[in-house]
Simulated assay, not measured.
Amino acid sequence: MTVFHRNDKKEPLPSSLKGGVVAIGNFDGVHRGHRSVLERALNLAKERGVPALVLTFEPHPRTVFRPDQPVFRLTPAPLKARLLEAMGFLSVIEYPFDREFAGRSAEEFVNSILIDWLGASAVVTGFDFHFGKGREGGPAFLMAAGERHGFSVSLVDAFRDENAEVISSSRIRNLLGQGDVSQAAGLLGYHYTVEGEVIGGQKLGRQLGFPTANMQLAPETELKPGIYAVRFRRPDGTLYDAVASYGRRPTVTDNGAPLLETYLFDFSGSLYGEIGSVSFFGHLRDELKFDGLDPLVAQIRRDEEEARALLSGVTPIGELDARIAF
């Protein structure tokens, strides 16, 4: 899997990646709605015998235009690239999005990126994709450009769930904000997953007999604080059932920064410095403040028992889920 970042935009694309089918979009979450676009691109690339690529933008455009309100990212760039690789894409183009880029004309976008740099033979995107200064480039513009320059254009309608509701990243964010990780998983097509470096903490969990792997998530994360049944994956792929607390730890601190603390079952050893991933399977309870440490320990034991029971019966909800959380 090749990922091209900001500094790569001035370098020529390897000839092996030119002439491919390019799926364009932000694809935050790589959810079931996105996969209707992405799978169309993969199938078309297979039919034509050319590489399948994804063109996405970093950072998220909303974060550029509203820096005081950064977007809660369902899948930060590294995790998104892993999901796209698991789907079968050969390369991800993470094109830098800034105000200078946003001010370019739609024609310049087509000429400089799709034609000169990528040499796209086909473009696949959502039916409402707009690009260029003032969003001047829309579906009709893109199709006309394809006719002029010799690349085909496939526009994919919004994907709806079993209740005929459109699956969107904002809808999934709202569910996670409510702690409904089960329904979010149904829309994502895999269990919501975060990843990060395991960092040191107060070591209170170790003193209580429940050592935790701590991760600092992005400040804009809108996951509901609480206790969750999760799975923890180490870099070598080893999985552990676990219970995780996300929040500010009201029993032991009055104003701590939000932290994800994961207690791995049947594990002993150090995880400091590792990049781990945590997949969420169920919300067990809200974050509570206990009157002392003894009631807290008793509750953690109950949380562990409930999490073990929940995780003992889970099965993958799809091929992507099997790769990420199983």
Rank of each mutant, 00 (worst) to 15 (best):
R6M: 07
R249I: 00
L271R: 00
F4T: 00
K10L: 11
F109W: 14
L176V: 01
E319A: 15
F159E: 15
A309F: 06
E108M: 02
F89V: 03
S312M: 06
P316A: 04
L187I: 08
S112H: 15
L223S: 09
G313D: 11
V297I: 14
P78K: 03
Y228L: 05
G177C: 07
L310M: 06
D236K: 09
S312N: 08
M143E: 14
L187K: 07
G201Q: 08
M143N: 10
F72T: 04
P258G: 04
N174A: 14
P76W: 04
F267I: 03
F129V: 13
P219Y: 11
K203H: 13
E220L: 07
V252M: 13
D128E: 15
R73I: 05
E107H: 11
V198G: 15
N7S: 10
A102Q: 01
S152L: 15
H31M: 03
R308C: 08
E47T: 12
S91K: 00
D116A: 11
S277I: 01
F290H: 05
G205S: 05
P51H: 07
G150V: 02
R160N: 08
G256I: 02
G205T: 02
Y246P: 02
E197A: 14
A140G: 07
G49P: 03
K224H: 14
P225E: 02
L311P: 11
R62H: 13
D254F: 12
N7F: 04
A122H: 08
L293A: 12
A102F: 01
V30H: 12
A144C: 01
L118R: 03
